[in-house]
């Protein structure tokens, strides 16, 4: 009898296994991180509690501040571009025409591949003096220094473009998905009222795309702010630390003897991610009301 009762109520607790797994491998370490971030643990000897000194150190550490700048600039470049290009691609590929699915597959293809391998691939192309692009350009008679990766500004631009190139397919697919949920009648109605393409886009398509926009904006913010592999492969954070992101900094601090400090940096990164995510969620909520 008891067993039957249990069976009849099982559906209410079906989220528990997922939650337990998540608790052990995510939430518990997260809380532990907070504890570790208040120590000077170096990875092997005993840790001492040092209060918030790690956080104070962070904000007087010019390398760390530079890494925040790099990470934020990368995200500021990458997230909007991903969304804009993804949306434009999706609008182009939403229409019926021959070869539609082929082009979709091609555009999505780079997103399938590990960013690390992708970074190395682009290094073949972009390496100054020896890369494919340099060789082609100098063959074509263009005198060019090809020093794209050797200066902080251009290197960051290259990183952003490579990232956008790789993941534009991902955003595009999500937008395509959103576009398919919009029923043709909506467009017809708009057409009847004599609205042009841009007016329809602004007042019909975009508002109805909000769920997709939400997913894309948030995943792109998170992804861009925790960028890691592509930088490792393309510039290794260099020259110097000019393109080092916070994620790489965390890894390197672990590899050095700054383990406690590295968790403090990780928590700071968390807050850096949280702020724009919450702002964009708020903004989109307001847009939902207006629409």
């Amino acid at each position: 009898m008891k067993q039957k009762k249990l069976r009849n109520n099982l559906h209410k607790v079906m989220a528990v296994p997922a939650f337990i797994l998540f608790f052990i491998f995510f939430i518990y370490p997260l809380f532990q991180s907070i504890g570790l971030s208040l120590t000077n643990w170096n990875g092997f000897s005993k840790a001492t509690f040092i209060g918030i000194r790690n956080f104070i150190t962070f904000f007087s550490d010019s390398r760390a501040l530079n890494d925040i700048k790099v990470t934020v600039l990368f995200a500021l470049g990458s997230a909007p571009l991903l969304n804009i290009f993804g949306l434009v691609y999706a609008l182009l590929l939403d229409k019926e025409f021959k070869g539609k699915s082929l082009v979709r597959v091609i555009v999505y293809l780079p997103a399938v591949i590990s960013p690390l391998i992708m970074g190395y691939l682009w290094y073949f192309i972009l390496q100054p003096q020896r890369g494919v692009l340099f060789t082609v350009l100098s063959h074509a008679g263009w005198v060019i220094s090809g020093n794209w990766l050797g200066k902080s500004g251009p290197a960051l631009v290259v990183l952003i473009l490579v990232n956008v190139w790789q993941f534009v397919g991902m955003t595009m697919i999500i937008y395509l998905a959103g576009l398919q949920t919009i029923s043709p009648e909506m467009y017809e109605a708009s057409d009847m009222e004599g609205a042009g393409y841009w007016t329809t886009l602004r007042y019909v398509t975009l508002p109805l795309l909000l769920p997709s926009i939400k997913i894309n904006v948030i995943t792109n913010i998170i992804g861009s702010l925790s960028v890691f592999e592509i930088i490792i492969a393309l510039t290794d954070g260099g020259p110097g630390y000019a393109t080092e992101s916070l994620s790489i900094y965390i890894l390197r601090m672990v590899h050095g003897s700054f383990t406690g400090y590295s968790t403090a940096v990780a928590l700071i990164l968390f807050f850096i991610i949280l702020i724009p995510v919450f702002i964009s969620l708020k903004v989109m909520k307001r847009m939902e009301y207006e629409a």
């Binding site: 050797g150 200066k151 260099g238 020259p239 110097g240 000019a242 050095g256 700054f258």
Partner: peptide, 19 residues
């Protein structure tokens, strides 16, 4: 161990980059 030749080299990179 927290300041390997690699790390020192990155500072020289910065130096060459004009930082």
């Amino acid at each position: 161990s927290g300041f390997s030749g690699d790390d020192a080299g990155r500072m020289v990179q910065q130096l060459i980059a004009g930082k």
